[in-house]
Write a protein that binds this DNA or RNA. Structure first.
Lengths: 310, 310
DNA sequence: TGAGGGCATAAGCTGGGGTTATGTGCAGGG
DNA sequence: CCCTGCACATAACCCCAGCTTATGCCCTCA
């Protein structure tokens, strides 16, 4: 630090237009005119005009082609708009999650969910639910299986989501998916080029980069490899999934992570999955509710949205 | 419109903290203190304090637990931080792409890429390149195969990326991955529950939701299904991939889209892939360069980052 | 040729986010 | 035991990004 580091020294937030500008750009792309976009976003036409223009100045690229009959995106503008869409989508997920987190006890739908589900899946469901039943107030509480069970049994939650091998006592549930743990390595790692499948024993014998002991992922891994000689001493123990991913890419050692956490890295090939022949590292993801009380109303609605794989 | 629509009427950008605030929150999570986070982001401690506080007010949730010896995230704060991380990551990709788009002709590395690659893959590569060789100025031009070839042969680009069946005349190249087209349906669609694989003929005979004629995806699909009776009249033709995805979810008709475009939807199970037995809808993604001139310097560097699947 | 849609420019206001200066509370060492 | 250090909060002030209204120009079409 303290070192002049080129343009990278300017923080991200000064180089990327703010969400309002990105949303406006999407509206222009969709509606084909600055004025219409302005109306759609509830601002005046000059405001939209100036905002787009200052975004173009900031990025140093012409985004829209203005004409007396409307505005079209330039080629560069189309590309920028696609990238902007991903930012806005992430912001929508943030918003959906945050709104549920704030949700009061008197919400119409009170959800209790495990961390993994709350983090990766729930925001998407909430967006879908909002599209389907706008105005449904949802509240979210995140915690482990016993916390979820407690809330449901105490009548403080309407629907729960847990990951694990069995349904907690006193609850009914249905499997809505699986959290598969996958062995991942950097594309440059030898394991990424193997022609034969990895064996569980090999995996157990290799020092990995892992979350610290106690994390859900780590526990599953420990248990699954117990019969294969037990997990070798980790090469590195880190506190967050993000840190683990970064280390895998750069440190050239493999790791085992939830498929949900590395989905994007896998499709972009920043990480590569290494198949393991004799090991299935999967936990069921379940929706749960108090035994005998099948969900009704909004809970039933949400449940329907999650039932991807019956 | 014109209708009071509850809290949803407030635009997203007023309900989601701006990027600066999200970055600051990540810094607090990482460093464990408002003051340190403030220094890391180059602002004063009171500014950080007030920013975090106003974010908590905006979200209606306590994010950090202050103590005289530092600040820890609350449970809700950890969740919010995870969601925030995804927004910031999308913004980083935006920034990397936009910066390359602005890049001048005298950049150290001039890249020409097809739309699909520029949209989905290049930003990630550029982030990795920046991590590995900070300060490398990159310029990006997006266009179809012949545009890319023209730039390379004219000496106006150092490295190209194209998708397609063959390497353009005058260029050498290497396959760096595959753009697989996948049949996708809403989880509620009958195809999502099939126990048998779809056949190409069935697919060809079913009205789909598609991009309009002329899009790259559409062309590949047309060609591949020609021998199976040709594509049925589409149920709906839409202008953007996003619109297609939305329609597939709600209209309950399937579509065929690039794996890159639906990766996230698949892992989150908002969409389900339907395997097709007798059809491989894959295009190679290739890095290309003028015949005989193997890339050197930054181009070689970038090429290394993309060689996920040799 | 006049009306209307679409974009740009100008002038003025407002508030969010920044700064410096200063206060409070707790821990640990001399 | 008190003093010093660190971390956070409060106060007072400043600035500019982004908004609004008013207006002008350009092009198209009836």
């Amino acid at each position: 630090m303290g070192e002049e580091n080129g343009p990278a020294a300017v923080p991200l937030s000064h180089r990327v237009p703010d969400l309002g500008a990105l949303e406006l750009l999407l509206a222009v792309a969709r509606l084909g005119s600055l004025g219409r976009a302005a109306r759609a976003r509830g601002i005046s036409q000059p405001a939209a005009s100036s905002r787009i223009r200052s975004m173009e100045r900031q990025l140093g690229v012409a985004l829209v082609e203005r004409s007396p009959r409307g505005s079209r995106l330039t080629d560069a503008g189309a590309l920028v708009t696609d990238w902007a869409r991903r930012v806005v989508e992430a912001a929508e997920a943030f918003d959906a999650g945050a709104q549920a987190l704030r949700g009061q006890r008197d919400s119409r739908l009170r959800v209790a969910a495990s961390m993994t589900i709350a983090e990766y899946l729930l925001p998407g469901w909430l967006i879908a639910l909002r599209a389907q039943r706008p105005g449904t107030a949802v509240s979210l509480l995140a915690g482990n299986s016993s916390v979820v069970a407690g809330r449901l049994l105490g009548g403080e939650a309407d629907l729960g989501f847990v990951e694990g091998l069995e349904v907690p006592e006193g609850l009914d549930g249905t499997v809505i998916g699986h959290d598969r743990l996958v062995v991942v390595a950097a594309p440059s790692h030898p394991w990424a080029r193997r022609r034969t499948e990895l064996t569980a024993a090999e995996l157990a014998g290799t020092p990995l980069i892992l979350r610290e002991r106690g994390s859900g992922t780590r526990q599953v891994l420990d248990a699954a490899l117990a019969r294969h000689g037990g997990l070798a001493e980790p090469l590195l123990e880190l506190a967050s999934t993000t840190a683990v991913k970064a280390a895998v890419v750069s440190e050239a050692a493999p790791s085992v992570l939830s498929e949900l956490a590395v989905g994007e890295e896998l499709t972009a090939r920043r990480l590569v999955e290494v198949p393991v022949g004799d090991l299935r590292l999967a936990r069921a993801l379940r929706a749960v509710w108090p035994a005998g009380q099948r969900p009704v109303g909004p809970a039933r609605e949400l449940l329907g949205l999650t039932r991807a794989t019956p």
